[in-house]
């Protein structure tokens, strides 16, 4: 075990995996950085620092800086995957799926099914997402719900360094396209990471803690917000189960239903607007399949149905908070 942050866990996993499999290539804008400059390509290490040292080790044939052309980046990743490579394409901000949506939702997602099951398109798209940096409406969104709704895509949201390693390694062994969402505010989060090969199968939630009174399902960065709320509630004698689904497609429905069967009370925390969100999706699942377990109507803690504002006070008001989660937990406990 080594202690490191999520940024380094992703960087080391890319190093290890590219070493293991010579078919893995990385492509995106400034993934190395510095192409065509006096400073040179080893000077930057990627915008987010997740690709440091890769170009020095694997060369510009495998660590490919592209022009600003998201449709061509994802389309080229698709084509390279069809031709037997394993591309890892980076979207510097998840918001930019707006530019290349066709290649993701009509192309990569569909090939296996549409072409009769023989076609593999194992592209990993790394999408850097999330609010919290006052990056405003076009650089802060958590679009995992959009991509979760598309059959054919697997959707992954690591929240710890160990999960980042285990889930990215898994993505690079599978035969399906994987949308790998990295929260920009989680890059510096530290934790233990297992040494050596480490894979976490998709569709297995992480039980963050068990408390027995209420089930909190939290997504992405909201897991740590839920832990804060649960700490405060624990001090008042309220025990929370916290479930981190880790992958939203496939979704570990069983883990959620099992916990709700014990607690009878559910709060889902999601860093996106409420409509067509994962929060609604998960509550729908429990309403349909866990109805008899429920002792109170489930509650969602989401952002409001608005774009993400710039100003500090506004972004703070937009984002779900530990206090909102605490209120929601009290709400489901006090119901009826």
């Amino acid at each position: 075990m080594a202690i490191m942050n999520i940024r380094d866990a992703i960087n080391r996993t890319l190093h290890d995996e590219m070493e293991r499999d010579p078919n893995i290539i990385l492509l995106g804008e400034d993934v190395a950085g510095g192409a065509g400059t006096a400073g040179g390509q080893e000077s930057i290490g990627g915008i987010w620092g997740t690709s440091g040292g890769l170009i020095g080790k694997f060369g510009a044939d495998r660590v490919i800086d592209t022009p600003i052309s998201e449709s061509a980046i994802i389309g080229a990743a698709a084509g390279a995957a069809l031709a037997g490579k394993r591309p890892v394409a980076e979207l510097m901000f998840a918001d930019f799926i707006g530019v290349c949506a066709d290649q993701i939702i009509n192309q990569i997602a569909k090939f296996r099914y549409m072409f009769g099951g023989e076609t593999a398109c194992p592209v990993v798209v790394r999408l850097i997402y999330g609010a919290g940096m006052n990056a405003a409406a076009q650089h802060s969104q958590a679009f995992y719900n959009l991509l979760t709704s598309v059959p054919g895509l697997k959707v992954v949201l690591p929240t710890t360094p160990a999960d980042a390693k285990g889930l990215l390694t898994e993505a690079l062994h599978g035969q399906d396209p994987v949308m790998f969402f990295e929260h920009k505010a989680l890059y510096t989060k530290k934790g233990e990471v297992p040494d050596g090969p480490y894979r976490i199968p998709f569709g297995h939630a992480r039980m963050v803690r068990e408390g027995g009174d209420v089930t909190i399902v939290a997504l992405g960065r909201m897991v740590s917000f839920a832990e804060k709320a649960a700490d405060a509630l624990a001090a008042q004698g309220i025990g929370c189960d916290i479930i981190d689904p880790r992958t939203t497609s496939p979704l570990d429905e069983e883990a959620i239903l099992d916990s709700v069967e014990q607690t009878g009370r559910l709060v889902v925390v999601d860093e996106s607007p409420p409509r067509c969100s994962l929060a609604r999706d998960i509550i729908g699942l429990v309403a349909e399949q866990g109805f008899t377990s429920l002792k109170a109507p489930p509650r969602m803690v989401t952002a409001p149905h608005t774009p993400i504002p710039f100003a500090r006070e506004l972004e703070r008001a937009w984002l779900p908070s530990p206090a909102h989660i605490e209120t929601a937990v009290r709400g489901v406990l006090d119901w009826g």
Binding site: E29, D30, G34, A35, G36, T37, S43, I47, D65, P67
Partner: peptide
């Protein structure tokens, strides 16, 4: 001559 950290001579071909 630059797009972020990439030089124009590279990215514009």
């Amino acid at each position: 001559h630059y797009s972020e950290h990439t030089g124009y001579s590279y990215a514009v071909g």
